[in-house]
Design a protein around this nucleic acid. Sequence first.
DNA 1: CATTTGCTACGAATATATTCGTAATAAAGA
DNA 2: TCTTTATTACGAATATATTCGTAGCAAATG
Lengths: 122, 122
Amino acid sequence: MKNIKPTESELEILNVIWDKGQATVRDVHEVLETQKQSGYTTTLKLMQIMYEKGLLEREASGKSHVYKATIEREEAQGQMLQRMIDNVFSGSASQLVMQALGHHKSTPDELDAIREYLKTLE
Amino acid sequence: MKNIKPTESELEILNVIWDKGQATVRDVHEVLETQKQSGYTTTLKLMQIMYEKGLLEREASGKSHVYKATIEREEAQGQMLQRMIDNVFSGSASQLVMQALGHHKSTPDELDAIREYLKTLE
DNA sequence: CATTTGCTACGAATATATTCGTAATAAAGA
DNA sequence: TCTTTATTACGAATATATTCGTAGCAAATG
């Protein structure tokens, strides 16, 4: 089980790739451009580094490469969450949960979904 | 409302100070030493930087300084949580909550506490 | 009074992350 | 065929974070 710790920029890229399933540098760059100003080669370089780190895998396709994430979104979310629980909430997941529920006005539907989910955890 | 983004090392220091209420460099260093090997002046330098950034305030006490956090633990937790919700869970707090509940076997007591808490959110 | 101890300040080395320019290359288009 | 375009690779500049050595100083100790 791989343990990842993406930087902020890497996470932005992962989010695009997770959304799309797979993507070229150009695909990713076009999305990132809408969020913040940045050069194409910046995105390229980051994705090359992520490939070297093993965060992404890639496959040649004509002149370019098609990248995929080597870890599922849920798996990565779980790891990042665990790190936050450990480092910020002294290891208490329930503390984190209550903070999250308290600060963000969730809709009644969302709260219901959580209640349902709690039932399945018995 | 100040918006903080402590680095990993800064967070370790903040945790000690939040636990103690206030602390000197030596106090902090003694705790950190039990967690990882590091030099006294490293801790000192970090706390000086945190002071410059406004993360800590300090007061001379004899030859040394007594430091306090300029932000409450809960406030900081809330901000870090919000950032994670935005960057990792596409803005969905309930997604984060369910991930947290699913991955970490909370005790029945904790789950009860969360259920109670949900009731108060109606 | 001289020495040791414990503190701050600060510069510098190192590591890591981010950004971008330039070169090489191959495909597409005129 | 010649030129433009889109791509990768890579080096380098910049920014940020981390670590520690050294100097200066004052208090405590012998």
